[in-house]
Amino acid sequence: MPTSPLDKVAHATPRPVARRIRGLTDRAIAWIFVAPTIFLLLAVNIFPLIWTIRLSFTNYRVNRPNRDVEWIGLRNYERILTDPDIWATMQATAHFLIWTIVLQVLIGFALAYLINKKFKGNDLWTTIIVFPMMLSPAVVGNFWTFLYQPQIGLFNYAVAFFTGVEPASFSMIGDVHLAPWAIVIADTWMWTPFVMLICLAGLRSIPDTIYEAAECDRASKWRQFWTITVPMVLPFLMLAVLFRGIENFKMFDLVVQLTGGGPGNTTTLTSIDLKREAFEKWRTGLSSAYAVILFVTVFGLASIYVKALNKVKER
């Protein structure tokens, strides 16, 4: 007589089914479990990727359903790689990517270092600092649009307070020289807490005994920082850089809300440009080639970076 719940379930399995399952190998059962995931992966990721690659060699346009689709070889790729406007968006993306990562790593690490020290109100400050990353990027974009407003924006008044310039004399999102920095500042405000949390995890993973041993050896705080803290937090920092790099390469919502890619094309990042090609100009074939180029770029850079990260971990 079955007694345990497991026995009861086994007993409840219809005999024909039980017989069939009993006849399966471990490998077959493993496939049964994995198959739905593989199917979903193929349907949602692999098939669209292959379809996109195929479209990238054609002149297909989704808004011209009645037009013949021609096979045009590498012409889309050639057009993208020789288009100065697309290279300008690549430059804008590189500017955004590099500066956001540099600022977020420096500020994030500094905040984590401070928060890691035990002091009164530590938890409260952590919660306050983490707050921006809990917001939606669209909300943050809207919020910073108001902050940057020349007549009433707090940002302009803060700059005016420290520098003495007239608040209405400059427009962060309307000036071609300032707008690229406006999106860097907003993204840094939003995502520095994320880097801080990862660094904090790294700092808290360092055993106190290492610092105690260093103290016994009379190592200065400066020496301890460079020979213990930084090397041990480095893998975490590199992970944060990887996450932020991939995310910011795809950056869309925050920048669209804040500047719409302007003024001119100064804040038109590749993702915004790709969206325009695909869903405003409806150049489906060309935008597929564009997407493939971006995918290969991100995938290639991320692979090299992950190898470097693994080497750092092994040290």
Binding site: Q149, P150, Q151, A168, F170, S171, I173, P263
Partner: peptide, 11 residues
Amino acid sequence: YDTSVPPGSSN
């Protein structure tokens, strides 16, 4: 645009 609009009205 250069001489007659409110600052920040670039979009």
